[in-house]
Structure formats: structure tokens, C-alpha cells
Simulated assay, not measured.
Amino acid sequence: MEKSKVYFGNLRTTSTMNLLQKLEKLVKRAGIEEIDFKEKFVAIKIHFGEPGNLAYLRPNYSKVIVDLIKANGGKPFLTDCNTLYVGRRKNALEHLDAAYENGYNPFTTGCHVIIADGLKGTDEERVQVEGGEYVEEAKIGQAIMDADIFISMNHFKGHESTGFGGALKNIGMGCGSRAGKMEMHCSGKPTIGKERCVSCGACKRICAHDAISFDENKKAQINHDKCVGCGRCIGNCNFDAIRNSEYAANDILNKKIAEYSKAVLHGRPHFHISLVIDVSPCCDCHSENDVAIIPDVGMFASFDPVALDMACVDAANKQKAISTSYLGEKQHHTHDHFINTHPETNWEVCIDHAVKLGLGNKEYELIEI
């Protein structure tokens, strides 16, 4: 198999070339303008950052891509799906507030922000996963599936469940609706925390399988014999009373992320950009970020998300750990920064499964601009 091309630009600047100009040069050289954008809706998947976290990508980078797509006749929008966990991005209204607070709004980016799975995280399209071992139908945010073209902009960092978060993590987990995120994270069925239940009945109304009833205290309860584990009740509960605590093993989680990524990308043009900067040890979903574990590396772009992730992790592993960081303070048992940071993870599982699904190639040619 021919090696995939991954393009790289370092973070050095001159009086005639700033970082934003360098990003534009990078993606053009990588071939983004080979895509026919004219009159096409373009979903740009990005993590807006949980407020309090300052490691997320600055909105200035997304404006470069938005302006380039518009110049080529496209109709771009920035997008993400609601979170499964309790935080500032669990429904569309709070999610938009968080995005605007972190600088993602039409005035700074040049396009609109659309929360792909709707107000409560229940607007989804079910997509067949050809060759899926764990997922038959992925539950993807509707607006993402409605787009003609898909672009991912990824903040490359460590991750406590997957080793690192790059293109595949941003695509697979990030594009899942709330029910989809539950399917990836969990292997069981949801339960109700009765101390939080206010007896509003929203969960019962959304349940298509008549699995929810009320006990003598008017608290909701789930009959697991009837429940199919779709997770729609989680998205419909405004009081975070419904959760799933049966989390899948990290290897299974990684494989499900690869399968969700295939559901998102299959059958339409896609392109991927990763910035290996502010490489925090954990996800941008945290409302804080620890000091970076390695020095900043640069920006990468490719049509192949697998090769892109491989190039980023290889480049990151060539860096020396910052001695005062979480990684620097840990014992190093391997030459892999991300396994050393989170020893219970194995990021290669996601990569290898993505290759098996035909999403891309581990072998790549790195071309520096």
C-alpha cells in the first residue's frame, strides 16, 4: 500500500509569515482546495473547550479554514455534539454559551456554530457501520450527517481513556450524540439516581420501549428487561438524574471510536488538521488543564486521519517530557509519552482497528513546508 501523505509545518514565524498564514499555506499544500466546496455545506468539527480549560484551540485557527472554504464557494459551520457528562456543554444552550465564552462565535470565526445533536443531544442519524465488530448503527449528530463535506480540526493532547486525543477521537467520540457517547463509553444500561429525580416524566415520554415507570414515591425507575440501552432518556433528563456507570474497557472504547469514525467519514469528502500544541495530559473536556507534558511541536494536515494521528504521536514521542509536568513527575516505563502518562491505556488499539476498517494507513510520508 502506498504511504499516505501528511504535511507538517513548525511553529517558527517571520515578519512576513505568522502562524495563521502558515496554517493556510499548510492546508493548501496538503490539497484542501482539491475538494469541490462550491455550494456545499461543510461541517468543521472542533472542540470548543470546557470553560476553565485554556488548552483548547484558539478560534483564530478555525477562521483561517472558514475563510478558505468560503473563498472556494463553500458554506462552512463549526460544530460539536453535546457531552454525556455533567458540565457546561451537556445541552445546546449551555454548549453555545461555552463556545461563545471561549471565542467561538460568528464575529470571530466568520461562520455560525451549530450543535449537531440538537437541544438535548437527541437529534441523531443512525448510520450503519460496515465491518463493525461492536457497533451496528452509530448514532451521529444530525447536522454533521447533513453536511456534504467533513473537516476535523483537532487539538492533539493526552487522554485518560484513549492515551491521546487526536483526529480519530475528535471524529468518533466527538460526533456521537449523547446516546452515541453512552454506547461508546458504556457496556450496560442506564440507571436513575432517585435523589436527583424530580418526577417530571420527561424520561418516560421519550422512551420508545415502555421501560420507565414511577415507584410509590413518584421517582422514575428503569426496567432493564425492556430497556435497549439507547440512552435517549439521558439526553432528555434536564436534572442529570440518569447515568450509566458500567464503563467499557479502554480497548473496547478505542475500537468503538474507530467504528464511529467510519460512520462519520464514509461516502463523502473529508480532510483533517491537527495542532500539536499545549499538549495537556487530559482531555479538553476538563474544566482545567494541567501544564503541557511536552514542548509544542507544530501543525499537521492530511486527507488520512489514521496517518495524521500516527504522524502526530510519532512527532510528540520525539520530544523530551517537560520535567515539571504530570508526565515529567512520573516514572517512564516505555518510550511512549502517552502510555507513560496513562499506563492503563493503549492508543494503538484505535489506530489498528481504524486500519482494519479501511479508514487509513499507518504508513505515511511526512512532507515539511
Rank of each mutant, 00 (worst) to 15 (best):
N105Y: 07
I273S: 02
Y100V: 11
D215A: 06
E363C: 02
A316Y: 07
A220E: 06
K120Y: 12
E2V: 14
D304K: 00
H185V: 09
N236K: 15
Y364C: 01
L84G: 11
K38G: 12
A179Q: 09
M184S: 07
S287N: 14
D290Y: 12
I351A: 00
K330C: 03
R243A: 15
Q142T: 14
F271C: 05
C111N: 09
L366C: 02
D67C: 05
G188N: 13
M184F: 07
D296S: 09
E246D: 15
T79Y: 04
H335A: 14
K63Q: 12
S62E: 09
G87F: 05
K204M: 15
D36K: 13
K25S: 01
R205H: 08
K226F: 00
H286E: 14
R268F: 11
K218D: 14
I140W: 03
T108Y: 03
I140C: 09
F239E: 12
I339G: 00
R232Q: 12
H112I: 08
Y247V: 05
G174I: 02
V228E: 14
H270P: 04
I206T: 11
Y104H: 03
H272C: 02
K38E: 15
A167Y: 02
D314L: 08
A98L: 09
D146G: 06
V135D: 06
C207Q: 09
G358M: 03
A143P: 13
G176I: 03
H332G: 07
V349L: 00
I294E: 09
A292F: 00
R178D: 03
A316M: 09
S261T: 13
P106S: 10
G132T: 10
G103A: 06
G235R: 06
D290R: 01
L20F: 15
L275R: 01
G180I: 01
K255W: 02
Q319K: 13
I367C: 11
G267S: 07
S177L: 02
K262N: 11
H266L: 10
H342G: 06
K22P: 12
S280M: 07
E136G: 12
E216M: 09
F214N: 03
D117C: 06
H286S: 12
A258M: 01
G174C: 04
G172K: 01
K157V: 13
L84K: 04
A311H: 01
V291A: 15
D146Q: 14
I32R: 10
F37C: 04
I192V: 15
